[in-house]
Amino acid sequence: MINGLDHIVVLVDDIKAGAKAYELLLGRAPCWRSHGDGSETVLFTLDNVSLELMAPAGNSPTANRIRNVINIWGEGLASICFRVGDIEKTFRRLDRVAMKPEPVAAVESRDLDSGRTLHWKRTRVETELARGIRMFFLELAEERPRSAVTSAAPILALDHVVVSTEDPERAAALYGARLDLEMALDRSHQDWGQLMFFRCGDLIVEIVRRPVAGADQTHDKLWGLSWRVADIGATRARLVASGLDVSEVRAGRKPGTRVMSVRNGTCGIHTLLLERAARAS
């Protein structure tokens, strides 16, 4: 049913500031700019995912709803959209597993710079049934243009999208049984809690449980992003030179990886950069 993660939506207060922040972080230019009912959007498209920045525009109900969300929760991750090959078939399966999908809708977007138009069909499931995560499913008619590289040592692709949960059993049932993603890892550790990895195309949906007293047992939270880089030392040097606050490079939990944290310039998103060791031929 699911071929991969199509895009992630990030709500930002100011679209120009958000686009500038992510052009710096990713080392890539926006590939799409559009204006819709009550919102402005900027897209960055990498090898395996698009990042959509969305800001309120005007005083429509949509714009006011976005502002209200930002006022309550701050800027940050808002929703995820899975790529599928057959939206009608996906709708039927989601309905069969009681996710209450909305009717399939045809949508289009026009790029303000080039005038090019993209078309897709999408549905979304009831947020409460997705454990509080706004979740869409999309069949794209045409591929988006890729974001051009603007700096040395750019980010290549997304490695993980991280979801925080207080009920790993129900989260596993959602992503494994109902969405039919393959579980690649289920591991617990006294220092960092329980981790579950679900394959989604060539990236991972990571479900993490870090027990917190009084936490919400019924609603999960989009928590963070882990981006893939080719040379983490070079990427760190670029970001430090640009004025971002980043950690030192350290060994990752997965053998053969090196990681570092980005502490600012991410529009409120917990952000990790990851370098994978080259595979032996």
Rank of each mutant, 00 (worst) to 15 (best):
H270R: 13
S188C: 04
L140Q: 15
T127D: 12
P154S: 01
R134K: 13
V229R: 05
V162A: 10
V162C: 10
H189W: 11
I133T: 06
D220F: 00
P168V: 03
G214E: 01
A234T: 02
R228G: 02
G201K: 03
A237R: 11
H219V: 07
R131K: 13
F198E: 08
C200A: 11
S188T: 12
L222M: 12
L140V: 13
A153E: 11
V249K: 03
F198L: 08
V162E: 14
Q190W: 08
Y175S: 00
L140P: 11
I204V: 12
M196W: 04
R187Q: 14
E166N: 08
R170F: 04
R238F: 04
E248N: 06
H270G: 06
R258V: 07
T218A: 15
E169N: 04
V161T: 12
V205A: 07
M135R: 04
A130Y: 05
G256T: 07
C200Y: 05
A234Q: 12
F197E: 12
G132H: 06
L181F: 01
E126T: 09
V240K: 09
G201T: 03
E206N: 01
R228V: 02
L158E: 11
G224L: 01
V163I: 15
K221H: 12
W223S: 14
L185W: 11
A230K: 14
G176L: 01
G268F: 01
R236K: 12
W192M: 07
A241E: 14
C200Q: 08
I204A: 04
I155G: 03
H270E: 15
D167I: 00
L222F: 03
T127L: 07
T165I: 00
Q190D: 15
T150S: 10
L129P: 03
G193D: 00
H219M: 13
D231H: 09
L158Y: 03
L239S: 03
V161A: 09
A215N: 03
R236G: 02
R144M: 15
S247H: 08
P168A: 04
A153M: 06
E128C: 06
T266Y: 02
V149C: 03
I269R: 07
A230Q: 14
V249Q: 06
R146T: 11
R209P: 00
A130P: 06
D180E: 14
R238N: 09
V259Y: 04
A172E: 15
E166V: 00
L129N: 09
T165E: 05
R258L: 10
T127E: 15
D202G: 02
P168Y: 04
F198K: 05
R209E: 12
M135D: 05
D202M: 00
L181H: 01
R253D: 15
G176Y: 05
V205D: 08
V208C: 10
P211T: 00
I155Q: 07
T150C: 02
G265D: 10
H160N: 14
E166Q: 11
D191K: 11
N264T: 09
D220T: 01
E182T: 13
R144W: 15
F137I: 02
D159E: 13
